[in-house]
């Protein structure tokens, strides 16, 4: 429709009850909104959970997402967290192919990104990295030529600054 979709990070405070994840996820799929990433866990209050959802939507749909989420009985608060006003982090584990010749190089690259080597196998290295989307993407691009066997991501979590 000519309207640019933009990534938005939504922080959704919900009641920590069974089925709430299904309600939120169901709402996104039913109304045709695509979820880029989703992270859920309990907050400092055990009766509340926080879901951090990254969605790719244009402005008008974002408003609908907000309103529809607010209609869910178990949703307490929905906040849009713009990158410039929030701390956003994701944790990623990569399994990278290595051989005796490349191992040192890879460790050096990971070091520059302040990542960690968390597993050493005969032909692979396990890499842990925390950061924003761009940082992770940069590391991934550098690791790719060596061969990324597998990767697992937590999905973005975020909190407002200040």
């Amino acid at each position: 429709m000519g309207v640019r979709a933009v990534k938005h990070t939504l922080s959704i405070l919900v009641e920590n009850k069974p089925g709430v994840l299904a309600r939120v996820a169901g709402l996104f799929s039913r109304r045709g909104f695509n979820i880029d990433s989703l992270a859920v866990a309990v907050t400092e209050k055990p009766e509340l959970s926080r879901m951090t959802v990254v969605v790719d939507v244009e402005e008008h749909s974002l408003e609908q997402v907000h309103k529809q989420l607010n209609k869910l009985i178990n949703v307490i608060k929905v906040t849009d967290l713009p990158a410039e006003n929030s701390v956003q982090r994701e944790l990623v584990l990569f399994k990278v192919k290595t051989n005796p010749n490349t191992r040192a190089e890879i460790i050096e690259i990971v070091d520059i990104f302040r990542g960690k080597i968390v597993d050493v196998g005969s032909g692979t290295l396990g890499v842990e990295i925390t950061g924003t989307g761009t940082k992770i993407k940069a590391l991934e691009d550098l690791l790719k030529p060596y061969g990324v066997v597998e990767c697992a991501r937590t999905g973005m979590v975020a909190l407002p600054r200040g």
Binding site: P18, G19, A22, R23, G26, L27, R30, I73
Partner: peptide, 14 residues
């Protein structure tokens, strides 16, 4: 039942 009705009711309980 809660799964089936999830998307078409205001709220449900099990």
């Amino acid at each position: 039942t809660t799964g089936i009705t999830l998307s078409m009711v205001k709220h449900n309980y099990l």
